[in-house]
Design a protein around this nucleic acid. Structure first.
Length: 291
DNA sequence: ACCGCACCCTGAGCGC
DNA sequence: TGCGCTCAGGGTGCGG
């Protein structure tokens, strides 16, 4: 689900539900590779801590704690971070949904996929982290502790420049699409926004990165920043699992130009959008607009 | 240094 | 109704 815009919208909207609140206790599911820090250790480290601020780095959320420790969260493909008041069918599997009355579907009840539940001293709304596929990650870092997951990240996609893309791509003998998904170059771009930006910049996703001209890199950087900012404005893309922290859908799925629009007409020229596979990821483009 | 691939996991949707 | 298949917005680690 979540790429930079979805993570940023989540950050902004979950902030009031986290910052300034003291964690009374954390409840978790059992050990799995979702937990880079063991659940028992996580509970000990977070108990009694107050969240001082909430930051985003690429697709990661970082909670700064009052003892200088940090809680790092990655939402993976299906991660959902939301408050107790959230109501959305996206928070239920189809089978679970079928077993519930419409009234019951309104209030979220933690299920087997709800890996974190934050309870606070103020007895206000709890905060949940749900992740069906468990591709997400949680990790606690001691004060000052570094971690390769964060260290490796390149420049944040919202401030990408043409110069940076041009410089970084010179020796890259790979498709520009794959290049954009490399988080160590630019952090925050995922499959949706890579396809969308390449369409805006009129670049074929299979173009070798090293063959891009300076002007094309400039156009691509502009397209990336534009599409990411626009998606944040509209609340992100709710295509499958993504919901904002209050349970509402984002709006950017209605503004997609190519992503998951195979066979539908290109918004600029009417040619049917094609779907191919590039670097094991589904890729959508207009063969007429993108050369 | 870089590239492509396998893999981690669960659920939805499809054809038969 | 159920089975088996494909697909899904992410990232790491491996061998070549």
């Amino acid at each position: 689900m979540p790429e930079l815009p979805e993570v940023e919208v989540t950050r902004r909207r979950i902030e009031p539900l986290l910052v300034g609140r003291r964690i009374r206790r954390l409840e978790t599911t059992g050990q799995s590779y979702f937990f880079l820090t063991q659940p028992a250790r996580l509970k000990r480290r977070l108990k009694g801590r107050t969240v001082e601020c909430l930051e985003r780095v690429g697709k990661y959320l970082v909670l700064l704690l009052d003892d200088g420790g940090r809680l790092v969260i990655h939402l993976g493909m299906t991660g959902q971070l939301f408050g107790a008041g959230a109501s959305s069918l996206r928070l239920l599997s189809a089978t679970a949904r079928a077993a519930l009355t419409p009234e019951q579907q309104q209030s979220f009840r933690p299920d087997a996929h709800t890996h974190l539940r934050f309870r606070f001293d103020d007895d206000g709304p709890a905060v949940f982290l749900r992740d069906v596929r468990k591709f997400g990650k949680v990790l606690w870092l001691a004060p000052g502790e570094a971690h390769p997951r964060l260290e490796r990240l390149g420049v944040d996609a919202l401030s990408v420049t043409g110069d940076l893309l041009f410089g970084a791509s010179r020796k890259r003998d790979t498709a520009v699409k794959s290049f954009l998904l490399d988080q160590s170059i630019v952090a925050g771009i995922g499959n949706i926004y890579a396809d969308e930006a390449l369409h805006l910049a009129k670049l074929r996703p299979t173009r070798r990165a090293r063959r891009l001209t300076r002007a094309e890199c400039e156009k691509l950087a502009e397209a990336l920043r534009g599409v990411l900012e626009r998606s944040i404005e509209t609340g992100g893309s709710s295509i499958r699992d993504y919901v904002t922290p209050d349970g509402s859908d984002g709006g950017f799925q209605d503004e997609r130009r190519v992503y998951a629009r195979k066979g539908e007409p290109c918004c600029t020229c009417g040619t049917a959008v094609r779907r191919i596979v590039v670097g094991q990821r589904s890729t959508h483009y207009c063969a007429s607009c993108q050369r």
